[in-house]
């Protein structure tokens, strides 16, 4: 690169750091949503950079659906301990939630109760005026128009018609009491950028992203990891050892694996460069109905 110019990753990094700092400067009580996935890993890494040598001036919040992969939870606890991060874990404990199972009630209802509602409970309990999320605009159509500072009303709802124009790098975080802003520091990153950055910065991610032989059930076209005795076999189903990895991580019974032999980050990137399907395909949630993400966002989902 010529003198005084930054590579695209450096530019993205600088932009994200500046956004994260801006939130701390503008808000009284921000929190960072931490989903344990690769995007969260990158976001936390950027936040640590933003405040170095000071510790992170906010907590991480993990909304645990209680059906996350075991390796995710292990990774989370180790990662947070290593970096001395304050972690809040919240699960929906209402009777309705207790009676629900992702195996029986379908991904729509499950996501609503265990993710959206749980998130709203946690945000209300913490009285946060800003919450960081690791979503990217390239993930899904309805995200393409998302602001970096996304306004939510007192019910945490997103109204696509009532978003503030965002010019230059000037962010308007002014809210009335009870209203809040969701902040997406990775807005301009793509899946490829994320992996390249993970590679360059040697950022640790959950081992499930790397290929290994794992016990797999094939169900409704998805490769489901039998992570847990709670996932019963349906008639005719068998558990097969298969060489798989995950492109995206969510609830164990709702997240499909892909067949892959990529065991390093460069191999993952190589695989991605020739991939023919997008990363969200492995998520049951987006398949429910056209525009389903938009609907969920209106209701308060990240």
């Amino acid at each position: 690169m010529t003198a005084y110019s930054l590579t695209h990753l450096r530019q993205l990094e600088a932009e994200s750091i500046s956004i994260i700092r801006e939130v701390v400067a503008q808000f009284e009580n921000p929190v960072m949503l931490y989903s344990i996935g690769k995007d969260s890993s990158v976001m936390v890494h950027l936040a640590i950079k933003a405040f170095h040598p000071a510790p992170l001036p906010f907590s991480l919040l993990h909304v645990d659906t209680t059906w996350k992969f075991r390796e995710m939870i292990e990774f989370r606890d180790q990662f947070c301990a290593e970096h001395h991060l304050r972690l809040i874990v919240h699960s929906n404990r209402t009777p309705e939630a207790q009676s629900l199972s992702p195996l029986i009630h379908g991904s729509k209802r499950w996501t609503d109760v265990m993710k959206t509602q749980a998130l709203l409970q946690a945000l209300a309990a913490g009285n946060y005026d800003a919450a960081f999320g690791g979503a990217r605009r390239d993930e899904e159509k309805s995200r393409a128009k998302e602001r970096v500072f996304s306004f939510r009303d007192v019910h945490h709802q997103w109204d696509p018609k009532n978003q503030r124009p965002e010019l230059w790098q000037i962010y308007n975080g002014r809210v009335h009491k009870g209203e809040s802003i969701r902040v997406f520091p990775l807005s301009n990153w793509t899946e490829l950028d994320v992996w390249q950055y993970i590679h360059r910065e040697a950022i640790p991610v959950v081992p499930l992203y790397f290929a290994a032989v794992r016990p797999i059930i094939e169900r409704d076209g998805l490769l489901i990891l039998r992570d847990d005795e709670r996932i019963p076999l349906k008639p005719g189903e068998t558990v097969q050892p298969r060489l798989i990895r995950f492109r995206t991580l969510g609830c164990a019974p709702l997240t499909g694996a892909i067949e892959s032999d990529a065991i390093t980050v460069p191999e993952i990137i190589a695989e991605m460069l020739v991939a023919t399907t997008s990363e969200r395909q492995g998520r049951a949630i987006d398949h429910d109905e056209a525009g389903s993400m938009e609907q969920k966002k209106r209701e308060g989902y990240f």
Partner: peptide, 23 residues
């Protein structure tokens, strides 16, 4: 490929800035 929100899709016009990425 590039049209975003449902309301806009129904009207058949894009009415907000959308961001796309390619490299």
């Amino acid at each position: 490929l590039t049209d975003g929100l449902r309301a806009e899709r129904e009207q058949g016009i894009t009415i907000d800035v959308a961001y796309r990425y390619f490299s």
